[in-house]
Design a protein around this nucleic acid. Structure first.
Length: 595
RNA sequence: GGGGCCGUAGUUCAGAUGGUGUAGAACGCUGGCCUGUCACGUCAGAGGUCGCGGGUUCAAGUCCCGUCGGCCCCGCCA
């Protein structure tokens, strides 16, 4: 057994990674973990690691017999404290691969503060480990530079956000986590109330209503970096608890919110990630975005826009097309330059790809030597072919994909297809960061499952004034003062101007069939607050984790969260959720009825 | 709720069509040697309930059914 030392009166003088040639000759005290030991019998080298990096420490019997003797026992991930002198490395012994590679610390005294059993994986970025093990031993994964770097970036980003808002007159206010379950939106996480048997709090899906009340309170400019909770299924970019940068402003228009947001993004990108972005960001109406990109979160790092061909094929002999038009559907296409080189197998894969978005098939045409090579070519008239050539600016080597279906299906399929093709054909500049705004979403959409209208954004979103007159009878014609911000095809935020008048709010509740009584019960506090001189106001919330994921160049939000959940929403690090004692349930007046 | 991929040593993986070795490799780990390494070198060695439970078969890591877990996606996510 190794005898452990106590830290005693030793104090760390430097971090491992910060030592340079300028420290040559200094006596230093370092603390950290053994990254690697190279024991030559006579002289022993150890790479000592802390959060800043590694430095080579040297145990030489000519410097200290005791330390050298002790160092034979050292193993990976043991925790050390060493005193020693910084030396410039001998000529030819430098290691230019690491920042501290021109110096080393000759150890005079060694303290072993703790040992370690063999870690389940080596603490090195280059080691490939499965995610279950990484999550079970998250504290070891976090020792690795890549993940650690993300967590540090996150800290810096948090600081930059606070700095930005403080300097623009915003006040940070904390809002409750134990809040109220409200209809609409995502499934709530519920928290039983011991003091109020049978009643439940809900963890907030966002601080939406609280921040509106803060506007009524006259806070005027609010922000918060705040955890939000939604009990829905997970994805690579979705966790049940996630962090928003939330803000709200009074006496403003959409343009004001957008300008503040763009300023924040620009500053964050520059200060923390050294990425230059130019503002203002491009802006599309919802309809434009759908028409051009088939998506309300377009990736505009590449082109591949959708082209509407409905006109051309309205009388086509190709029944699939003409029937679709007759039934009020759309025919759209994307022209993939150079796509004619795709194999039949690849086209089949893409067909299967679009079918998961509701497509019944995927028509295509290859342009080769001025001719159309396509299963549907024989159905097309000369006139149609000519019109097609013109509309899509067809050239040799092009590959055209068609979608004919309802507008929803066409846009969903081609919108996803253009991204998939761009990935496969490497059309995406990975180092580019392209923000854009999508504005003026429809206010309502019809939920055929529930047989009622629901709000596309949330029920507190202000309809566009000029369209309010359509409200009672033609809700589908009404758009809202809403805006999403999109980065590289990922929705990273969204907001709106809010309703600040009781009459409009009641009208909206009415359309989504929240009756007077229910409105009073669920949102009475809001309606009442609007009566007390609520100012015009609006705001936005950014998905902080997603933003960091993109700026850190990660494929998953989990890589910017210290302790993320698995796809089944469990925490492998501490094994949550878990069973609780019967006594705990009793106190909460809860009886389980498990199948 | 649905579709797809995956589960073999501490880790990452290989083990066609079921059957010639004691289920292999690399890294890691343990012990010895080594005074300039930095992916140290070198010699020797240990390490496996093939996720779990059934079934088919003379015989299952391999085939079938179920189950648990991980990842990606659809639905869902105002």
């Amino acid at each position: 057994m190794v005898k452990l030392d106590i830290i005693g009166d030793w104090q760390r003088t430097h971090y491992c990674g910060e030592l340079t040639q300028s420290h040559t000759g200094q006596e230093v005290t370092l603390m950290g973990w053994v990254q690697r030991r190279r024991d030559h019998g006579g002289v022993i080298f150890v790479d000592l690691r802390d959060r800043t990096g590694i430095v080579q420490i040297v145990f030489n019997p000519e410097i200290s017999v005791d330390a050298h003797k002790k160092a034979h026992a050292l193993r990976s991930e043991w925790v050390l404290a060493v005193k020693g002198k910084v030396y410039r490395r001998p000529e030819g012994m430098e290691n230019p691969k690491i920042s501290t590679g021109y110096i080393e610390v000759m150890v005079s005294e060694l303290k072993i503060l703790n040992t370690s059993i063999q870690p389940p994986f080596l603490i090195e970025d280059s080691i490939d480990v499965g995610e279950p093990i990484r999550l079970s031993y998250r504290y070891l994964d976090l020792r690795r530079p890549r993940l650690l770097k993300n967590i540090i970036k996150r800290h810096l980003a948090t600081q930059a956000v606070r700095q930005y808002f403080s300097s623009h007159g915003f006040i940070e206010v904390e809002t409750p986590f134990l809040a109220k379950s409200t209809p609409e939106g995502a499934r709530d996480f519920l928290v039983p109330s011991r003091l109020n048997p049978g009643k439940f709090y809900a963890l907030p899906q966002s601080p939406q209503l609280f921040k509106q009340l803060l506007m009524v309170a006259g806070i005027d400019r609010y922000f918060q970096i705040v955890r939000c909770f939604r009990d829905e299924d997970l994805r690579a970019d979705r966790q049940p608890e996630f962090t928003q940068i939330d803000l709200e402003m009074s006496f403003v228009t959409e343009e004001d919110i957008i300008a503040v947001s763009e300023g924040l993004m620009k500053e964050l990108c520059k200060e923390v990630f050294d990425i230059e972005v130019s503002i203002p960001f491009p802006s599309f109406s919802y309809e434009e975005a759908m028409a051009l990109y088939g998506s309300d979160r377009p990736d505009i790092r590449f082109d591949l826009k959708l082209k509407d061909l409905t006109e051309i094929f309205s009388d086509s002999n190709f029944k699939v097309f003409s029937e679709t038009v007759k039934e009020g559907g759309l025919i759209k296409a994307i022209n993939v330059k150079g796509g004619a080189s795709l194999s039949r197998k690849e086209i089949d894969e893409l067909t299967r790809f679009v079918m998961q978005f509701g497509a019944k098939g995927l028509a295509w045409i290859k342009v080769k030597g001025g001719n159309f090579h396509s299963p549907i070519s024989k159905f097309l008239s000369l006139g149609e072919k000519e019109a097609l050539r013109k509309a899509l600016n067809l050239e040799d080597g092009d590959l055209v994909f068609f979608s004919a279906d309802t507008p929803e299906v066409v846009h969903n399929c081609l919108g996803n297809l253009r991204v998939e093709i761009a990935k496969r054909m490497r059309l995406i500049h990975e180092d580019r960061f392209c923000f854009c705004w999508i504005r003026h979403f429809p206010m309502f959409e019809y939920d055929s499952a529930e047989g009622r209208w629901t709000t596309v954004h949330h029920p507190f979103t202000m309809p566009i004034e000029e369209e309010i007159s359509y409200l009672p009878d033609e809700p589908e014609r009404v758009h809202s003062h809403s805006y999403d911000i999109v980065l590289n095809g990922v929705e990273i935020g969204g907001g709106s101007i809010r309703i600040h008048r009781r009459d409009i709010q009641e009208m909206v509740f009415d359309i989504i069939q929240i009756g007077k009584e229910e409105a009073q019960e669920k949102f009475g506090f809001l309606l009442e607050a609007l009566d007390y001189g609520a100012p015009p106001h609006g705001g936005i919330a950014f998905g902080f984790d997603r933003l960091l994921m993109l700026l850190c160049g990660c494929g998953s939000i989990r890589d910017v969260i210290a302790f993320p959940k698995t796809q089944k929403a469990t925490c492998l690090t501490m094994d949550a959720p878990s069973k609780v004692e019967a006594q705990q349930l009793k106190e909460l007046s809860i009886k389980l009825d498990l199948k």
